[in-house]
Nucleic acid binder design. Structure first.
Lengths: 203, 203
DNA sequence: TCGATTCCATAACAATCAGTATATATGCGT
DNA sequence: ACGCATATATACTGATTGTTATGGAATCGA
């Protein structure tokens, strides 16, 4: 294996920052969806030409997967933080309040890239959908495990199943994403969160 | 105003049934989204040629709005039934179980056309999105009014706000649509519903 | 049977799609 | 200074997008 350290750099050096360009691409995919984002949109926002894009990222699909990596790493960091909260209720609250922040930030597109990409369902986007669904499943698995721990902690009532509670919480989060992507205000999303927390099961 | 009764029918009669063709078009939009559905897809499924489509429906956008009308009238009929349930809890349960039926029927595409169309966010689809959002708002208004009545009936706790409860229930419904559109099984959706009902506020 | 009228079918339209071929520019080691 | 390797810029590819013009076919009232 080769280190990622600065290699000798044989040929002509590229004139743009790959990470920065990827971040711009993420913004376009987030705002317009996978199919809605054209290569012209992408190269425009990234400030590079098409051959440069293909050389650096492969093709549109590969670019999207890398943008999804970045999205998970940066914009979904709060989900990993949420799992560390001491109570199941705290976990849920951190998830939902983090979702509000991520989905209504004024410097980012509205809504959730995962939900947008899973809902956009052209035929060519099947591999995109599969990737998003797989990532969601793995993220749900972590939450299920966290709720199992909560039950062992006596933090959740006996009659609550971690799998069901996870599906339920994810439904709320996805619903919030749909609403924020449809122009819902932060105040409206907060009402959803307050209502959810009001009903959260107590041990 | 002219009656819709069979006019003398001046020229050559059309060789296809408009309602049937519209129903086929709805299926395509439902399965592939507004932007994902091409005119070729549509004419293929409808069994007509492009000029016939344009003559009968105007253009792609007008066709979509009419398909949305049909969707509301046929596939969302359960929501009007739900509002008639005697208790707020019954209303919510009817909404959610109706959503399961509508979103996992084996003879229809999975998921909810409204959610799919609101999430698909190309630039050209702005008018589509606006239509879907407006219809959702009007449907939410009816549910808010129903929950207000429930409060007057002493059917909901005092501290529950009809607006918040509506946003919350819609979030769950939209989340279920996202999940069913992403391959969730009926059993998984039923877990969401059971969990939601378990937490439903009692007066 | 004759317009008049409306429909269907084929083919074309300009625009856009994702992706690439070609040519030129820039850096390295030698 | 030379070749090698890589990046950039322009222009192009074939396919597909939504939409429409054209020509023939079908049904009407007269």
């Amino acid at each position: 294996m080769e280190s990622t350290a600065p290699l000798p750099a044989k040929g002509r050096p590229r004139e743009f920052c790959v990470d920065e360009a990827l971040s711009k691409a993420l913004g376009v995919f987030w705002a317009k969806g996978y199919e809605g984002a054209s290569m012209a949109d992408l190269t425009d926002a990234m400030g590079i030409t098409k051959p440069s894009l293909y050389a650096a990222f492969g093709n549109k699909e590969a670019l999207f997967h890398k943008a999804l990596d970045l999205y998970e790493a940066e914009k979904l960091a709060y989900t990993r933080e949420a799992l560390k909260q001491p109570t199941a209720r705290g976990v849920a609250e951190h998830f939902m309040r983090g979702a509000i922040e991520a989905q209504t930030s004024t410097c980012d597109p509205k809504g959730c890239l995962g939900v947008i990409s899973a809902a956009a369902c052209g035929a060519e986007a099947e591999s995109i959908k599969a990737d998003v669904i797989a990532r969601r499943a793995s993220s749900q698995e972590a939450l299920i495990e966290r709720f199992r721990q909560a039950k062992r902690d006596g933090d959740l009532p006996d009659h609550v199943e971690p799998e069901s509670l996870t599906l339920y919480l994810y439904a709320i989060l996805q619903g919030m994403a749909v609403q924020s992507g449809s122009g819902a205000s932060r105040a409206e999303l907060e009402r959803v969160v307050e209502t959810s927390l009001m009903m959260w099961p107590t041990a």
